[in-house]
């Protein structure tokens, strides 16, 4: 596997939240705006890159039977760091994301990458894989955030779009809208795949 394939896997082919449907809680919960999606994506990027790095670094020292517990402690440690940092320097973002920052601990993407990739590959490749996966996760969050923000508020990145005769659909900001938006985005990905398969 070349470095490029490892990095690109997370961005499209094995996209974590839109294709593998991992990490659904944040994907649905905090995507009421593009900015929140970006903030969450950054927090996950930090945790995923550092925990993949750690796991790859000490993989030979961890006894096989307790590996999941060890991974979980590593992840929980970095999540605590991320949470405390957000609370101290970006209180507004911390409030917007609420309990979904600590919930990164149980985000299946992170444990999944630790188990499926970082525990079997070199440190460099693991960091590359973590970067690709978390950037993929981030654009997934931002895409759903964009759909919900445009339809629910008529803005993007907080800027008013000013479409005439458009009344925001409040429903897109409510929980039901999250399910609809994700459902349609995943269906759209499936549709693109099918189109490509017909062509070849």
């Amino acid at each position: 596997m070349s470095k490029k394939t490892i990095f690109l896997a997370g961005l499209w082919r094995e996209h974590p939240n839109l294709r593998q449907l991992l990490g659904m809680c944040p994907t649905l919960a905090i995507t009421t705006s593009v900015r929140n999606g970006f903030a969450m994506g950054t927090a996950v990027l930090f945790v995923l890159v550092f925990s993949s790095f750690m796991v790859a670094l000490i993989k030979r020292l961890i006894p096989h039977q307790v590996r999941i517990a060890v991974y979980t402690i590593i992840i929980a440690t970095f999540v605590t760091i991320a949470d405390i940092t957000l609370k101290a320097f970006f209180p507004q973002i911390s409030r917007a994301l609420g309990p979904y920052v600590p919930l990164i601990v149980v985000n299946c993407i992170i444990l999944g990458r630790a188990e499926a990739f970082a525990s079997r590959n070199s440190v460099g490749n693991s960091v590359l894989d973590a970067l690709g996966m978390s950037l993929g996760f981030m654009w997934g969050l931002m895409a759903i955030g964009a759909v919900r923000e445009i339809l629910g508020r008529g803005t993007i990145f907080g800027f008013r779009l000013g479409i005439i005769h458009f009344r925001p659909w409040i429903i897109m900001l409510l929980p039901a809208g999250a399910f609809f938006a994700l459902g349609f985005v995943v269906a759209f990905m499936n549709f693109l795949d099918r189109q490509r398969r017909f062509k070849t």
């Binding site: 609809f180 459902g183 995943v186």
Partner: peptide, 8 residues
């Protein structure tokens, strides 16, 4: 997708 929309 259909499960998500049903959930919605």
């Amino acid at each position: 997708p259909i499960v998500l929309i049903t959930a919605g």
